[in-house]
Nucleic acid binder design. Sequence first.
DNA 1: TGTACATCAGTGAACGCGCGTTCACTGATGTAC
DNA 2: TGTACATCAGTGAACGCGCGTTCACTGATGTAC
Lengths: 234, 234
Amino acid sequence: MSRPKGKHNGQDTARKIKTVARQQMEKYGTAGLTLRGIAKEMGITAPAIYNYYPRLEDLITALIVDAFNALAEAMHAAAVETSHSSYAARIQAIVGAYRQWAVENPVDFQLIYGNPIPGYSAPAELTTPLARKPFIELMQVYVEAMNTGALHIPTEYQDLPDSVAQYIDGWGQRVGTPIPAPLFGQIISGWGRIHGLVMLELTHHIQPVIGDPAAFYSYEVNAYLQRLELLSPK
Amino acid sequence: MSRPKGKHNGQDTARKIKTVARQQMEKYGTAGLTLRGIAKEMGITAPAIYNYYPRLEDLITALIVDAFNALAEAMHAAAVETSHSSYAARIQAIVGAYRQWAVENPVDFQLIYGNPIPGYSAPAELTTPLARKPFIELMQVYVEAMNTGALHIPTEYQDLPDSVAQYIDGWGQRVGTPIPAPLFGQIISGWGRIHGLVMLELTHHIQPVIGDPAAFYSYEVNAYLQRLELLSPK
DNA sequence: TGTACATCAGTGAACGCGCGTTCACTGATGTAC
DNA sequence: TGTACATCAGTGAACGCGCGTTCACTGATGTAC
């Protein structure tokens, strides 16, 4: 807690570098990130950055870790805010936060889910747990909804392939309670749906087709929740 | 038809350049494409490429146009092959081709649906019609299935938002027959679902979660078709 | 209060590299007579 | 059949540029006595 007083605080600068790096990526794309560009924007020289990140790679890794945590945090906040609401409201809030965060931080979302940066690949042992994090809480809501009898799995999702089913146990352990196979299939379907819409929105492919991605996203989520009988048709 | 005989054929070289460019992108990512890299791989010098593509940008544009056409062609071929099959089989074949082509040509798929290449943006008036192309045929199948009474729109997709509904007319014209609003919503939902699963597969995010992306894809498509009553539960 | 020393963020020059692009050219091939 | 000319894909040198990274350094700040 005792940090050097008047003296410059290194943590601030490290954070500033990351902030400017994100701005640079917004301008020039994730692959357009350069140390010299960041330095110029900050009014310092490029070698100064080496005091904080020994290699460009380390900076990118830090940005990716931040992105994963920020997405998880956004979804967690939505879960907390609605923890006393209906299952439908909780799921709407959490998956709504997924899109909202992506739209507000498109570069960070691309850092997680987009094209890899040439010559760089994030260490998998670092990213895999981070990638799982935001979904554990969501799965808990589903399982709870099913156990209380509020959620009904529709017939069309009954027959999860065996090759997929063997991955359920690991998730059951992480979530803290077993997950029935059809529910697992239904949850991954939900992930695919929201992810597809978000990606099509971020790459500007869906706007010319439907015009209003936000409205369609709500419509899709509502349809999904209706099918699980967590939401009634209007 | 009368091309110079013994003389070198420029079209072959132009095609070879694109082929090598694709290989380079596979190796180094879409952003890692360089004229010098292509030239080196081909055993020629970089300036020679200028005889075929006056700028690097033109080469990339050519690659993108090729990618759009190849995806459309793959989906069209699937449609033709199954044109006398059931509606379910036809839709399975077309959306199956979407994933199949993406998995076999990940770089080209990223060129269409992925992160933009830094400093380059494809001319929209060129890409928009190309982007629509593969879906027109698919929509025709849906509309036909609905008009014959084979397809039933589930209740949860009834209320398409107004802001989205106004985009339907344009599609109705392209497809050649009016599209009911709930069917339109259902179709876009289907696009989002398959696109999400494909993107998660290409970026290696879904393998650690479900293990077998191909099996899950079929499961999801079947669930979708069952819900439309185009396929019965086993 | 004053002096000597340690710390360390940031500087500026330099490195080697690969990039897109230009330019005058070469040399093999095809064409006209 | 032989010669002169036109065509044009490809060459090799050169350009200016921005990149990541290294290195010895400076100079402000904090610390010890």
